[in-house]
Write a protein that binds this DNA or RNA. Structure first.
Lengths: 360, 360
DNA sequence: TTGTACGCGTTATCAA
DNA sequence: TTGATAACGCGTACAA
């Protein structure tokens, strides 16, 4: 019973991978370099403490064996997965796509990877995906909006998983980490701008408000501001539905073909507003002559499509970046302060003007 | 020495998580339910073989302890991470965003999660991210285009990681799994269509072709087809650059303000084509009266912006779905056949017409 | 500076 | 049907 007990029985369980070839393990590298596993580990995670020649031997062995560390094992040993999750309603909207993109780019600089889920605006899907990501051990999570089950948020807090609710105004969800702006206030601003122009008859084309607290806040911002002036929107001028170009086109036609169409139509986003513009030119309706249109988001096209859409500029990419930086700080043990994002800014373009009756 | 050695020294190393609370382990559940760890594992992965009452006891313990399985440990034990990766140039293009979205939705049905990387069109970034994902143990990978270092693809094959190159025509990269259509042929089709209309003077506004084999194929498709008729594009009418609306606007202006502008401009994608249309209306250039414009991709706006853009319809969402299904099949041990995606289809709209000289 | 030995939380083999 | 226990591949006290 001597030196033939030296190395481990090189593999007892048959690997379950599809791989045709055996993968090298850290132990194999150690053996090849004639060092201990601890040393190999040090070469990877703490190179300063290991002597140059040993380091070189290990590196050679790594190259020779084509070894790549196993992240699952590392995660198990360290309780760190280096993974962050983001759950979005869709990626087919420039804003969300940009958040994901900037978030990924930001966290990549700290060696974090991004798990992405798409919910298609279904609340249960969001919850379900979030739970799956928690099982996966995401170290942080980005969620959209505040409309999530209390138990999900509770679980995140219970597990100590930092999360950020994006597109949620500070103050709306007390005690939560939020990055966003005040949707309500933004639409107050838009509405007041139109009121100041002299408009007194309004239409509202908005997204579906189920599982969408942003859309609800926007709608209420408009309604409350108008109510302050004793103005209401006629039910036939209030259309709630989806959010794409063609939804806007359909809604615009419906509103403008109704009796006594409004002089201003407030849209929940730029896609809807652009849909209105497209349908208007099709119908021969002059914008802003016959009716003013406003959007929200300031997507590229809003400034490019003549006469330009009056809208609110929101800082998408910054949202992803801020969330990313916040996570990096928190996960590195720093305090991690979540600063406020600049408030949306009204951008006045050619799609709005005084109502005809007001003009001289 | 009796029954006080019974359970493991409940935790020697201090946990590294930020978590304020101890997480329950499978072993804790086992103890609480008074069964072995093997049984708890069976309840999760092989419930049929465990008796109903025991199963119930285990479930109660799970609920009581609020246990969620640790995916890293599971991955380590099974060599299956249940993760798929996708690396895209950007998400700010509808096509790529849709691929990611449909891929995620497809693989979610088989309990796979999606890791997303964005390269901003930088080849090294793509390679680097791919390697990181391999370390993470992604079980499959989606890459865009065929322009990847041989060693990366070699490593994937060496490791037995199935991958799919999307936006690559079958036949272009022999031996690789590809989903895509023939970019070259598609632009032959467009070019021939314009030639048939009678055009003899062309402009080409295209994406940057470094690390973008699709863009190269498209350009060559145009050039070769024209050369067949002994036609070349004047250097000043060939503009290569980025790919957004405003790039198209700038390029269009440059081309149209040059001496002897062409009668038809072929654009590498719809964003560029729309940029041309927008600039044209700004400049008072009539489309298709003064110049015909073609795009590629058939994004929503291509059919909505009057007079509509003549373009090729490509099946984005299908690409993601097919890749997802392929992976699911392969990873479940099935053969996994990668069918061909329908060829892009020429959609003729109002942005193209006969050149003025040809008309009666 | 390096090595030994154990733990991370599961699954899976084998025996009962 | 259930239980003991050895992997899985890595980090890391602790000792040398």
């Amino acid at each position: 019973m001597a030196d033939f007990v030296d190395d481990k029985p090189s593999r007892t369980r048959t690997p379950k991978t599809i791989a045709t070839q055996q993968q090298a393990r850290l132990a194999d590298v150690a053996k090849a370099a004639n060092v201990s596993t601890a040393t190999v580990s040090r070469v990877m995670n703490n190179p300063e403490v290991v002597s140059p020649d040993v380091k070189e031997r290990v590196h050679q062995a790594i190259r020779k064996l084509n070894w790549v560390p196993n992240a699952s094992a590392k995660a198990l040993a360290t309780s760190r997965t280096h993974t962050i999750g983001a759950i979005m309603p869709t990626l087919d909207h420039q804003n969300f796509a940009r958040i994901v993109e900037s978030l990924q780019t930001t966290i990549a600089s700290a060696k974090y990877e991004l798990l992405v889920g798409v919910t298609h605006y279904a609340r249960e899907v969001a919850t379900h995906q979030a739970q799956a990501m928690i099982e996966r051990g995401v170290e942080a999570l980005v969620l959209v909006g505040a409309d999530h089950p209390e138990e999900l948020l509770g679980m995140l807090e219970h597990k100590g998983v930092p999360y950020v609710l994006v597109y949620v105004a500070p103050g709306t969800a007390p005690g939560r980490n939020v990055i966003g702006y005040d949707n309500y206030q933004s639409f107050v601003t838009i509405t007041e701008y139109l009121l100041d122009l002299g408009h007194r008859s309004f239409g509202l084309i908005a997204q579906d408000t189920s599982f969408n607290d942003r859309a609800r806040a926007r709608r209420e911002g408009v309604k409350d501001t108008l109510a302050e002036r004793e103005i209401a929107i006629r039910p036939r001028h209030f259309i709630e539905g989806a959010w794409k170009f063609e939804d806007g086109m359909r809604a615009f036609e419906k509103v403008m073909r109704s009796d006594e169409p409004p002089t201003a139509i407030i849209c929940g986003n730029d896609y809807l507003a652009i849909g209105c513009m497209l349908k208007a030119s099709e119908m021969g309706v002059d914008i802003p002559g016959d009716v003013s249109i406003t959007g929200f988001d300031d997507i590229d096209l809003a400034r490019l499509l003549p006469p330009g859409i009056t809208t609110m500029k929101v800082p998408d990419a910054l949202v992803g970046e801020m969330a990313g930086r916040f996570f990096i700080d928190v996960l590195q043990g720093k305090i991690g302060q979540l600063g406020a994002v600049p408030a949306p800014e009204l951008i006045v373009r050619g799609s709005t003007a005084q109502p005809r009756s007001r003009r001289t």
